[in-house]
């Protein structure tokens, strides 16, 4: 979709990212519980393949590839709910993510600690769904979305902090006399 009205509307309002992630969280918890109850052996095999793709990208240190594999893994969980309405709506939600409406997902992935955390969360989610443990699957999915919210908040703050660092280093440009080297960060 080249002209996605809804995507553009959300893009111009940065705070909608948190509404987006809240909506995702409430769907993900319940969907993961349903997937744990309903996934067929073939679907669990599929999930294992998708998880391995994440692990491979992670080992290769390839954030872009890991992001793609990440979305594929989550979509496979929703397919395992066997609920066509859920799949339709979640596909639309992931479309927004792919278009980078709220944040650049690979930005989050650039942080090593965040990436390692996401990988462990995906593994935990897979284990719970494969074991047919609905309560643990729900918890794992909600933890994962909580971590995403936290990572996003930190990434946004980090951007703002860097702006401040730059201004401090380079000066505000508003004073008459330019800052001398030894006074600045140098």
């Amino acid at each position: 979709m080249s002209t996605d009205t809804f995507a553009n509307l959300l893009r111009s309002h940065a705070d909608s990212a948190y509404d987006y992630l809240e909506f995702r969280r409430l769907l993900a918890g319940q969907a993961s519980a349903l997937a744990a109850e309903r996934a067929t052996p073939e679907e669990i095999d599929q999930l294992r393949v998708k998880l391995q793709a994440i692990e491979t990208a992670h080992a290769l240190d390839d954030p872009a590839q890991e992001v793609t594999a990440d979305i594929e893994f989550h979509l496979a969980i929703y397919h395992a709910t066997h609920n066509v309405v859920m799949v339709h709506i979640i596909t639309r939600l992931f479309d927004l993510l792919r278009q980078g409406v709220f944040f650049d997902r690979s930005d989050l992935y650039l942080r090593r600690g965040v990436r390692d955390g996401f990988l462990r969360q995906h593994q935990a989610l897979f284990r719970a769904v494969a074991a047919g443990d609905a309560a643990t699957a729900r918890q794992a999915a909600e933890n994962h979305l909580d971590s995403t919210v936290e990572a996003l908040r930190e990434a946004q703050r980090a951007d703002q902090r860097r702006e401040i660092s730059l201004r401090r280093r380079d000066g505000s440009g508003l004073v008459a006399k330019a800052r001398r080297k030894e006074e600045g960060v140098g």
Binding site: F6, L10, S16, D19, Y20, E22, F23, I89, R92
Partner: peptide, 8 residues
């Protein structure tokens, strides 16, 4: 007060 949920 969740606008994404509201629109869907």
């Amino acid at each position: 007060h969740n606008v994404v949920m509201l629109h869907f």
